[in-house]
Simulated assay, not measured.
Amino acid sequence: MSLDTVVEDIRDDARARAENIREEGQARADEIVAEAEADAEELLEERERAVERQIAQEREQALSSAKLQAKQQRLEARRDVLEDVYEQVEAELVALDGAERETLTRELLDAASTEFEDENEVFVYGRADDETLLTKILADYDGYEFAGDRDCLGGVVVEGRNSRVRVNNTFDSVLDSVWEDNLKDVSARLFEQ
């Protein structure tokens, strides 16, 4: 064997080992790239799921917020309508006149007078515009006198000289009581669903 042959064998052997190392390196590089691509794909899918969850959560929050806002607006509108109805009833009570106003005022005074059966002097207060009507009605009651004005829609406030009792039988107090007792029914009739 000649030196050239030995050198050529060594070179062939080195080339084969270099090719083998290169192939192993390429296989390892391909493996690393495949692992990195799989990891990147998994990370991408995880991030997409997280974004979808966040979008769904934000959508649900926005929907919930919109529903709450709509409910509040509906309640405000109902409250406004109820206030309008209440104010309309007040206006109609103020506008009552003649026999109807007298009848209602007498009934309220009669109901209050049961508290003052033992009193010699009873003071009656009422709406300034009703002074003439009250004076006329009080002529039928012994010991009762008109004592002054009250800011009210009508009716009477009655108190005895010696008692600490005061009876508020104004249209306002009756309306407030009736309104409170029937608000649910009024609301149901106005806002039937």
Rank of each mutant, 00 (worst) to 15 (best):
R17E: 15
R164K: 13
L133G: 08
L63Y: 03
Q54Y: 05
E35V: 02
D149R: 12
E41I: 04
D80Y: 01
S173E: 15
G154Q: 03
E121M: 09
V158E: 11
A66C: 08
F116D: 09
Y86Q: 05
A18V: 00
C152F: 00
A70M: 09
S2N: 15
L44T: 11
S163P: 10
R127Y: 04
G148W: 03
L153R: 07
Q54K: 13
E8V: 06
E48K: 15
L175P: 12
E60G: 03
I55D: 14
R59V: 06
Q54N: 11
D12F: 02
R127V: 03
N20Y: 01
D151T: 01
T132I: 14
Y144W: 11
Q69H: 04
Q61T: 05
V6W: 10
I55N: 13
K184A: 05
R59N: 10
R17S: 10
R189C: 02
E23W: 00
D110F: 05
M1T: 02
E90G: 00
E192C: 03
T5Y: 01
A56H: 05
E58Y: 02
A14D: 12
K184N: 04
G126T: 11
E102W: 04
R150H: 00
D130Y: 15
A99Y: 10
L190G: 06
I10A: 08
L96D: 12
V33M: 11
A27S: 13
L153H: 01
Q57K: 07
E45G: 01
L190Q: 09
E37P: 03
L109W: 06
E131Y: 08
E192W: 07
V186T: 14
M1Y: 07
